[in-house]
Computed example of a mutant assay.
Amino acid sequence: MTFAIQFLINVLSLGGAYALMALGLVIVYGILRLVNFAYGELIMVTGYTLFLISGSALPWFVMAAAAVAMAVVTGIATDYIAFRPVRAKSVTAVLITSFAFSTLLQNAALLFISPRPRVIPLPEIFSRTVEIGGAITPMRNLLTIAAAVILLALFAFLMRRTVLGIAMRAAATNFTMARMLGVPANLIISSAFAISGFIAGVVGLLWMGRIGTVVPGIGLEPLLVAFIATIIGGMRSLTGAVIGGFVLAFIDTSLNYTLPQELLKFRDAFTFSLVILILLWRPEGLMRGPATGQRT
């Protein structure tokens, strides 16, 4: 019973983080049909913002809010700098500018801050442990689960019950038709980048709460995780992105518990093998998105 509780907490905690990462990536893809390869750097920006203001007398929650706000601003800047000027030209141009903006942010951190890991401030609750049914787990796992539940619920409410959410769903279904019906395209796209930045900021706090440091390349692993999760769940489905995140977490956690110690270093190879099997069975992902119109 203790093992089952521990396993469930680990899957839900890791799955919550993975689901949020995937959601932040697919919300932009759903409208533009373009992958934001600078998404990982939003997490890096969150970490370095916390590091740079850590010497202030501000409470940690105020610093965390400032870090998330900076991720939102950077997300919107990604649209204005890397996407908007070239998105009407070609997919290749957008991919190149996306990579270029990602590299620019990483090199800015290398030049103006440091290539070495920097410790970020974390509240004491992140290092505490709690016992549930005999299973001892870090409080940060429970915080991740709670944050994921709250954010996913708020996102579902936004998409289903607000004018902005309905407009974003319409744009994701048929962008051209949505524009013809009066939906402001640039506002919807900027809103998608802002929401993506907000999710990335929260994920950054939770992700760095596990490791306690930030480096210029910290966003690569979350970006890879988000990309794999969206492929598993379905690139055109918001629900699929969330499901894909939990499926990937279940695979990772199961391998951690079942692989012998000497094979743990090959865990990624086993994970990708299982992902390939899933895609051979469902090439379009576990969830199919809506039929879509053309991007403009």
Rank of each mutant, 00 (worst) to 15 (best):
74 T>S: 14
266 F>V: 07
158 L>W: 14
168 M>W: 10
19 A>N: 07
52 L>W: 14
172 A>P: 02
36 N>G: 01
245 G>Y: 01
53 I>Y: 13
197 G>W: 04
70 M>F: 10
106 Q>H: 07
26 V>M: 04
101 F>I: 04
170 A>D: 03
42 L>V: 04
82 A>Y: 11
227 F>R: 02
135 A>M: 02
89 K>A: 10
174 N>W: 08
277 L>G: 10
104 L>E: 04
59 P>F: 06
5 I>T: 11
258 T>N: 08
108 A>C: 08
248 L>M: 07
253 T>G: 09
67 A>K: 07
216 P>G: 09
97 T>H: 07
176 T>E: 15
265 K>G: 15
186 N>W: 05
104 L>M: 15
276 I>K: 03
144 T>H: 00
17 A>K: 02
225 V>A: 10
66 A>D: 02
234 G>M: 01
91 V>K: 14
96 I>W: 09
89 K>M: 06
257 Y>F: 15
105 L>H: 07
235 M>Y: 04
259 L>I: 08
75 G>M: 00
126 F>K: 00
85 P>D: 09
59 P>A: 08
6 Q>G: 15
89 K>Q: 12
271 T>D: 05
279 L>C: 06
141 N>S: 00
55 G>P: 05
39 Y>V: 00
77 A>K: 06
44 M>K: 05
218 I>P: 03
30 G>Q: 07
139 M>W: 09
8 L>M: 09
281 W>H: 14
70 M>K: 04
212 G>C: 05
68 V>E: 11
43 I>D: 11
295 R>P: 04
33 R>F: 05
166 I>T: 14
190 S>C: 05
28 V>H: 07
247 V>C: 10
74 T>N: 05
58 L>F: 12
210 R>V: 06
32 L>W: 08
296 T>S: 10
181 L>C: 14
51 F>V: 06
243 I>C: 12
109 A>D: 01
190 S>H: 11
105 L>F: 12
154 L>H: 10
223 L>C: 05
215 V>P: 04
280 L>K: 09
194 A>I: 06
216 P>A: 09
283 P>R: 11
296 T>H: 10
68 V>I: 15
35 V>D: 07
256 N>M: 12
248 L>E: 09
32 L>N: 02
8 L>K: 01
287 M>G: 05
